[in-house]
Design a protein around this nucleic acid. Structure first.
Length: 482
RNA sequence: CGGGGCGUGGCUCAGCUUGGUAGAGCACCUGGUUUGGGACCAGGGGGUCGUCGGUUCAAAUCCGGCCGCCCCGACCA
């Protein structure tokens, strides 16, 4: 136990300094490295593989629902941004520009995309002529750049990877249904794949996307009680189709503007995974997003080593046949204890130990990362036992995160109450809101909390605005956010 | 961009106050002994002290600019 304490010293405890803990974990777990350019990071293999697993799963879900992938250019002419007023105002401050190429100054500056509504809108206008061309359901996996003032690895980087879906529809109804369909995909994906419980809801006007009519989000709670917008889905109305002239002839031979949507999730999800599931021993990953789901560690004195290691390798191969992501650490220059701690720190959900005693009994030892639960299982039943254990860990991690969110989710009636309570315990606070921007702004000024969203489902509705005490139009979740 | 803190081998840091030939622990390399919760012994390699400039006989150390990182704000996935 005393040894364990010494090990933990390498990672700052969460309760001592959460930010420091986060930086310690991502570096010790070898997920990223800092790049030479401000705010840019290198995704190292374990970090990148998490993104690959996210991509693979979401991509399948998008395709199931009729979307197809395409790829649009990184560079966007300046004039494109001028076409939608709110959009340009929203993004201009954070755009990087290409002003020279081929040794000559460009006639028109090119923005490095912060998002692709404009270029895709332009292309959509060429592709859409008739109601028969709709709906048009496109997704792209891409990198984007936003020159943010403050950066934090994974959570807010100058360049980040994401997926942006863009669709065009005949009617408002169709487009709104699309917006909600995607929101539901995000919710289900967050909860059942990432084991991150979320609050689903609509953004207030001041928090919505630049150029959108309505923005919806899923909001996740980090272990420091702060919120992360984990995914967004926007209904654009005809704002972009008017700006980019996306028109079609309807069934009555009348020209109509298409209704468009856009939606996205980013590599910020990796940051969220770390902050939702990690603990003082390091990273903890839900099995479905873990690059390594099972780490095999052979144990034993030199005399038995070869025998143990070769059996361990056989078991690894056996597990691979069930599609389990498994690796072995059979280095003989590190002790088993060292390896146990190392892979716990790296977040590997399940450890398989095999030693001389297990060899005799024809068993293997499985140990869970999150709570240390140990199971001694027969080698011939290994695949089913591992599969079942991983499944249980996945569910348990969701339940733990859900419990945490529930424990840090309460309601307040007044802004003073919010101010006091949020100082005592960071978390989500439900409150009534009259709908005025002034009241919303005052909450931000006085408490540091912003409106996260207007939840689709709430436990209780609040009748009065927490600031002005006028009749509440909405019940809103307030929290400090990343 | 405003306020605060910090940049010294791969990592965590000491040295700076009071200038005078760069240190520790971990990691790494070689050999040996070890292996069921961060093993041990012996030997070894690696740093123009973030960067540019100034002061000085002499700068990691004093002064200034710039860059980067962390925290707190305004902006945001």
């Amino acid at each position: 136990m005393s040894d364990k304490k010494q090990f933990v010293k390498e990672i700052t405890p969460q309760e001592e300094d959460f930010s420091r803990w986060y930086i310690d974990v991502i570096r010790k777990a070898d997920l990223m490295d800092y790049a030479p350019v401000r705010g840019c990071i290198v995704f190292k293999p374990d970090g990148y593989e998490m993104w690959e697993l996210i991509q693979k799963e979401l991509d399948a879900r998008f395709k199931e629902t009729g979307h197809r992938n395409a790829y649009f250019p990184l560079l966007i002419p300046e004039s494109f941004f001028q076409k939608e007023k709110e959009h340009v105002e929203g993004f201009n401050p954070e755009l990087p520009w290409v002003t020279e190429a081929g040794g000559e100054k460009l006639e028109e500056r090119l923005a490095i995309r912060p998002t692709s509504e404009t270029i895709i809108g332009q292309m959509f206008s060429r592709w859409i002529q008739s109601y028969r061309d709709l709906p048009l359901l496109i997704n792209q996996w891409a990198n984007v750049i936003r020159w943010e003032k403050r950066t934090l690895p994974f959570m807010r980087t100058s360049e980040f990877l994401w997926q942006e879906g863009h669709t065009a529809h005949e009617t408002e109804k169709d487009a709104r249904e699309q917006t909600m369909r995607i929101l539901e995909i995000y919710r289900d994906f967050a909860e059942n794949f990432l084991a991150i419980p979320v609050v689903v809801g609509q953004k207030t006007p001041s928090e919505k996307f630049a150029g959108a009519v309505d923005t919806y989000s899923i909001e996740a709670m980090m272990k420091d009680g702060r919120a992360v917008q984990a995914g967004t889905s926007h209904y654009m109305g005809t704002n972009f189709s008017r700006a980019f002239d996306i028109k079609y002839l309807d069934r009555n031979n009348e020209l109509q503007y298409a209704h468009t949507t856009s939606w996205g999730v980013s590599t910020r999800l990796i940051g969220s995974l770390i902050m939702v599931h990690g603990d003082n021993r390091g990273l903890a990953l839900p099995p479905k997003v873990a690059p390594t789901q099972v780490i095999v560690i052979p144990i034993g004195p030199a005399a038995k080593r070869d025998e143990v290691v070769s059996r361990a390798r056989e078991l690894m191969e056996q597990l691979k046949k069930s599609g389990i992501r498994v690796r072995i650490d059979d280095r003989d220059d590190q002790s088993p204890g060292w390896k146990f701690n190392e892979y716990e720190m790296r977040g590997v959900p399940l450890r398989l130990e095999l030693g001389p005693r297990d060899m005799e009994k024809g068993q293997a030892v499985l140990v869970s990362r999150i709570d240390g639960e140990k199971r001694f299982v027969a080698q011939e039943r290994l695949n089913e036992e591992v599969t079942a254990f991983l499944d249980e860990i996945q569910k348990k991690m969701f339940a733990l995160a859900k419990q945490f969110m529930d424990d840090h989710f309460s309601a307040v009636d007044t802004i003073d109450e919010l101010k006091t309570q949020i100082e005592e315990q960071r978390g989500f606070y439900l409150a009534g809101w009259c709908g005025s921007e002034a009241c919303e702004h005052q909450v931000k000024e006085e408490t540091g909390a912003t409106s996260r969203n207007i939840p689709t489902e709430v436990k209780e509705h609040k009748g009065r605005c927490l600031v002005c005490q006028e009749e509440a139009k909405h019940t809103v979740v307030f929290a400090r956010a990343y």
